[in-house]
Design a protein around this nucleic acid. Structure first.
Lengths: 209, 209
DNA sequence: CGTTACCAAGCAAGCGCTTGGTTTGTAAAG
DNA sequence: CTTTACAAACCAAGCGCTTGCTTGGTAACG
């Protein structure tokens, strides 16, 4: 547990969402965008949340669209770093798979849940050019997943196409933001283990654990 | 295949999305809401799509919100009927599970994909009262799923909590609308089978298939 | 003394929706 | 077959409001 905290501290808090005026604007915007959606959130809402006038926002961001883009860029950077840290910590494929799942669940229902919801649900509010930019950033994140799943497949632990499996995992994981209760009886770790078994099946006669 | 078509015809096309003015409005609205989102779709957009003036819309629906609500109600009614038909056709639990998955996939990436996307992504655009109404309608649909999964659990084919498994299936299925290509090499039936194995695991020594 | 952060006021555009009147389809009455 | 009657469908115009964003100026800080 001390080690897990160490990893978290090494990654640091979400860059650009610190105590600076810009950071406080992004945090407030992320929460509002998740709660009300990008279109139903006005710049006046965001301004009120951080205690300034609506016009003052445009000294920090050129347009409202830029705020949305910045939220998405920051959360992808942060979570890619976390996923990379999980890979570094767990070289063994099966342990790595579980670590990746834990990391993704933590992104979605843990510390970056607001911004992750925004990433999924406000996707089409981005201009096509910026959708491409975000996709390019996501590609790094996705490659870590595909490498892991491909290794499992080569070891005979996975039968199906890694790309299909990755997409099914994405669906399972991203949907948790609609139902998972972090104060409920099901822990994040237990849920991660259930999902692991959905990917590689029951541990049959491969020995312990 | 003739039987499958018969089921489809028995269910009929989506009620209230026929050739009537109201039906054409709902179809156009569903597609626009999916493509641009509810908030970015103006009543002028919808009107242009069906070739009338924007004001004329309000002879068919009291408000724009009512259009969104109607789209959701119609698609839930239609897909609940399809799920019920699948249950009626397959009494055996394992075959029924696969039929339910096929039905849900067809809802999401097949004939009602526009309206299903709207149901998922424009959820928060509904007023709280209407969210409750829609949830009450969904409850019937969900109960068919829970009954099936509970039976599988009693037969020892499923280890985990049916509610958790149902939510994981919902996630896998609803996410397919972002990636599944109906003209690609992976068929809906093959995908359904992959998902079945994610639920009940590999067929080990239970005999055939 | 310049940079950063902000305020007060308001503009132009786009929005959902209303209004008063006109066309179109339909079907019974003559 | 024509006339009359009526409701459903629609048009043309625009109102009132909210929106993202602009402008010109001020206060604080190093």
């Amino acid at each position: 547990m001390a080690q897990a905290e160490k990893v978290e501290t090494a990654v640091g808090s979400v860059h650009g969402m610190d105590d600076s005026p810009r950071g406080k604007l992004l945090s407030a915007a992320a929460r509002l965008f998740r709660d009300k959606g990008f279109d139903r959130t006005t710049v006046r809402d965001i301004a009120r949340e951080v205690g300034i006038q609506s016009g003052s926002i445009f000294h920090h961001f050129p347009t409202k669209d830029d705020i949305l883009f910045a939220v998405m860029v920051e959360v992808i950077r942060f979570n890619t770093a976390r996923l990379q840290a999980a890979c570094d910590q767990y070289p063994e494929p099966l342990a790595r798979l579980e670590a990746l799942i834990r990391a993704e669940l933590k992104s979605i229902i843990g510390d970056t849940s607001e911004a992750m919801s925004v990433l999924v649900y406000e996707w089409r509010c981005l201009s096509p050019e910026r959708q491409q930019e975000v996709l390019a950033m996501r590609a790094v994140y996705e490659q870590l997943w595909i490498d892991c799943l491909e290794t499992l497949r080569q070891q005979g632990l996975l039968e199906d196409d890694p790309f299909v499996i990755r997409r099914l995992i994405t669906g399972m994981a991203s949907w948790t933001n609609t139902w998972f209760d972090e104060h409920g009886s099901l822990s994040l770790e237990a849920l991660a283990h259930i999902i692991v078994r959905r990917v590689i099946g029951e541990p049959r006669d491969t020995g312990g654990v």
